[in-house]
Simulated assay, not measured.
Amino acid sequence: MQNKKIFILLIFILLRSSLMASNMELLTHYRNNGIEDIQKQLDLSLTQKAYWNEYLKNIDTKFGYLESYDNVLTCDKSQSQLSLYMKDANNTYQLQKVYSAYTGKIKGDKHKEGDLKTPVGVYKIVQKISKVDSFYGPMAFVTSYPNTYDKYQGKTGKGIWIHGLPTLQQRDEFTKGCIAINNPGIECLDKHININKTLLIINESSVDKNISKDFLGDVLSNLYSWRYAWIYNDVENYLNFYANEFVRFDGMNLEEFKKYKKRIFAKNEKKTILFNNINVIPYPESENIYKITFKEIYKSNSFSFTGDKVLIVKLINKKINIITEK
């Protein structure tokens, strides 16, 4: 079944592509070496910047490269605004609503429990709470703070919500770190978003809406170069994608990680590695830092895994350096 899918993909590429020389080369590889050689050639093609430049040409990359999200919430702390963008029929993110918002009493990025700051970062909405204390209005949406990058930076705290305003009490014009909007606003938000398909970006100022497709192409081609080294057991090239300051989510440092990966690669197993629902998002208030998330499907003779993967990478001289992963 896998070979059949690959062959169908090859035929699709041959029919759609105008690069006849490349088609001839692929067909010759297939004629001489069979379907596995073609698969390797296709995997290599996914590492090419030219492919991603062409692929991204007509894609809305207003907030990055997003496969998983139909809605984007942006919070501009300096303007006390929460904005909702929704994907339209043309797969373009359009501004739908702007809500006045209260944020943390103290300016700046959150670093520790109780510092009264709203975090800066990229988050998911992980839960809707319909029954809350009247202080939080009719409902609340729980964010994924602290995320993988927050934990890598040693940030602490929890319970960062988007919620409403008190129905029975008075309140100050700030929060302890949450984002609060008026109650008609939180009810409107509830009607418009699917929490599983909503991204939240919080920034000190206006969230960037002019993301470079060139940089996104660099990140995506590097992501698939990392995958290519992984699939074809090139341990040295695989490990070259990891920064010296790398620390895995569980505390494993780079030297420990290298030893661990070299033991696995030494098995020289044939692997299937697929990435679905890829998202590449520039990290606010951070230079050349990107959050990459995707669903990973991994199969080998000794191990299989299907689940969510997170990489935090720094783009240096057009190459990604992985600083943490989960």
Rank of each mutant, 00 (worst) to 15 (best):
K57M: 08
Y69Q: 03
I181Q: 01
K4E: 15
I273G: 00
K318I: 01
K4G: 06
V207M: 01
D172C: 04
D115Q: 10
Y51F: 15
P146I: 03
I129H: 11
I125S: 04
K259D: 12
I59N: 03
Y242V: 01
M86S: 15
F63Y: 07
E204T: 10
I281V: 15
Q169H: 14
T167C: 11
Y283T: 00
E173W: 08
Q170S: 14
S130W: 09
V247K: 04
T148L: 10
F305A: 06
S18V: 09
I292R: 02
I8V: 11
F7K: 13
I264V: 04
S304P: 02
T306K: 06
Y123I: 05
G251M: 08
G104R: 02
S221M: 12
D37P: 01
N53H: 10
M20C: 11
A89N: 13
N183M: 02
A229H: 13
C188H: 09
C75P: 01
Y93L: 09
D70V: 08
V98Y: 02
K105L: 12
C188K: 07
S130K: 12
L200N: 00
K97R: 15
W226L: 10
C188E: 12
D218G: 05
D208R: 08
L254S: 04
H163L: 12
D115S: 11
V235K: 00
Y232V: 05
N91Q: 13
I273F: 01
H29S: 15
I125C: 03
K151Q: 08
E67W: 07
L199T: 02
K314A: 02
Q79C: 10
K87D: 05
S302H: 05
L42C: 09
